[in-house]
Design a binder for these strands. Structure first.
Length: 326
RNA sequence: GCCUCGGUAGCUCAGUUGGUAGAGCAAGGGACUGAAAAUCCCUGUGUCGGUGGUUCGAUUCCACUCUGAGGCA
C-alpha cells in the first residue's frame, strides 16, 4: 500500500514536540495547536492502532477539543504497522496540512517515527519480506543467533560491527539489506538532514523521580478507566496476544493476567516498571539529537509556564522561517 | 528482667577459618534502517548497626551498646 505511487517526498516546515512518556506532550500539544492554528500528527507506534485507546493514552475526541489529529487509529490491531508505513502516511498528512495553510505539529515519543519524519531516511530501498524473516528467525531459534550473525559478518562486515550478535531483529534486518545488494547498503546515513525542510524540534523533560511518580499514577488511572476490559475486548475480538499491536506496554502485561500467566497485581507492577524503563530509553534516544530545544516541565506537571515559553519559541521560529522563505 | 536468632547495596539475602565484600531483583548508562511501547548491550551504587578492645590489619574474634523478631518469666 505504501509503494504504489512511490515514496512520498518530505516537505515542511513543521514543528515536532517530543519527550518521554507521561511528560505531558498530549495536553501541551493541544494547547499549542489551539494557540497557533496547528493540526496534530501523532508519532506514536501504539496509538496508530484502532481500539488501543486507554493503554496507549490516546487523546479522546473530547480532549482533542476540535483540533484535527492525524495518524491515530489508522491500523487494525490484527495487522502489523511499520515505520515505513508511518513515514509514508505522516508525510501525506503533513503535506495536506500545509496545503490547508496550517502548521503541522508532530507529537509523539516513538523515536524511530520522529526520526523517519525529521531525517532523510529511505526505508523503501529494501522492502521487508515477512516470509524470509520467519525463515531466518527459525534458523536462529534452532541453531542460536550466532549463525545469522556469522552470515552477516561474511557479506557485510562493516554493518556487522554496528549490530550486536544477539540482537536477532537487527541482524535479520541488516541481512535483508545486505542480501539485497550493494546499492541498498551503500551510502547509508541514518542521520542525513532533509534538504529544504525547516523543522523546529521541541523536547519536554521532567525530573526523573517526578516522572516515575507520574507514570505509576497514570498506570493506576488506566486500570481504573477500564484497561483490563479494553484488553479483554481486543482478545475477544480475535486479536492474538502475540501480535505486534499487543506488545505495547499495558497490553502484553494485562493479556498475561487475563490468560492466567500472572496475577493482575503482578501485571500492574510489570506495566509500571516497563513504562519507567521505556521512559528512560526514550530519554536516551532524544538526548543525543542536537536539534531539540528542551523545556523543563515542573514536577507537578503543570504546563502554564512551559506553554507560554514554547509558544514564544514557535512564534519566533515561524517569523524567522517565513522571512527566509519570503 | 533472662534466653535465642537477626542487623551487610534501594529490597531480599549470601560471604569472608581475620587481608575493607557479591548474587537476584530494583536502579543507572548506552545502542538503534520496514516489529521501535519492540529488540539488544554495559554497569555494583556499601561508614558490612554504633563505640571500644585484641591484632601489623576487624565487616569477620571479644566486650559493651543501640535496634528488630521470637521464646521464657
Amino acid at each position: 500500500m505504501d509503494t504504489k505511487t512511490g515514496p512520498v517526498p518530505a516537505c515542511g516546515p513543521f514543528v515536532a514536540l517530543v519527550g518521554a512518556t507521561a511528560t505531558g506532550k498530549t495536553a501541551l500539544s493541544i494547547e499549542i495547536a489551539r494557540a497557533l492554528n496547528c493540526e496534530i500528527v501523532s508519532a506514536d507506534s501504539v496509538q496508530v492502532y484502532k481500539g488501543l485507546d486507554i493503554g496507549s493514552a490516546k487523546p479522546t475526541v473530547a480532549e482533542r477539543q476540535g483540533v484535527p489529529h492525524h495518524m491515530l487509529d489508522c491500523a487494525d490491531p490484527r495487522e502489523s504497522f511499520t515505520a515505513a508505513r508511518y513515514q509514508d502516511g505522516a508525510r501525506r498528512c503533513i503535506a495536506g496540512i500545509l496545503g490547508r495553510g496550517r502548521l503541522p505539529l508532530v507529537v509523539g515519543g516513538t523515536g524511530l517515527y520522529v526520526h523517519a519524519l525529521t531525517y532523510d531516511v529511505d526505508f523503501s530501498r529494501v522492502v521487508g519480506d515477512e516470509g524470509r524473516r520467519q525463515r531466518l528467525r527459525a534458523l536462529a531459534e534452532e541453531h542460536g543467533p550466532d549463525i545469522l550473525y556469522a552470515r552477516l559478518e561474511e557479506i557485510a562486515p562493516e554493518r556487522a560491527r554496528a549490530v550486536h550478535p544477539h540482537n536477532v531483529k537487527r541482524v535479520i534486518r541488516a541481512l535483508e539489506i545486505a542480501e539485497a545488494g550493494g546499492a541498498a547498503a551503500d551510502g547509508y546515513d541514518f542521520r542525513k538532514p532533509l534538504p529544504g525542510v525547516d523543522i523546529l524540534m521541541l523536547g519536554l523533560k521532567m525530573d526523573r523521580a517526578a516522572l516515575y511518580r507520574r507514570i505509576d499514577a497514570r498506570v493506576d488511572a488506566m486500570i481504573k478507566a477500564g484497561l483490563v476490559q479494553e484488553v479483554q475486548g481486543l482478545l475477544d475480538s480475535g486479536v492474538d496476544s502475540g501480535l505486534p499491536s499487543m506488545q505495547g506496554l499495558g497490553y502484553k502485561e494485562i493479556a498475561n493476567a487475563i490468560l492466567g500467566r500472572c496475577t493482575l497485581e503482578q501485571a500492574i507492577a510489570d506495566i509500571k516498571r516497563g513504562t519507567r524503563r521505556y521512559a528512560k530509553r526514550q530519554e536516551t534516544w532524544f538526548k543525543r539529537d542536537p536539534r531539540i530545544e528542551w523545556f523543563e516541565v515542573s514536577p507537578d506537571g503543570s504546563l502554564n509556564g512551559t506553554l507560554s515559553s514554547i509558544i514564544d519559541c514557535v512564534s519566533e521560529w515561524k517569523a524567522c522561517t517565513m522571512n527566509r522563505r519570503g
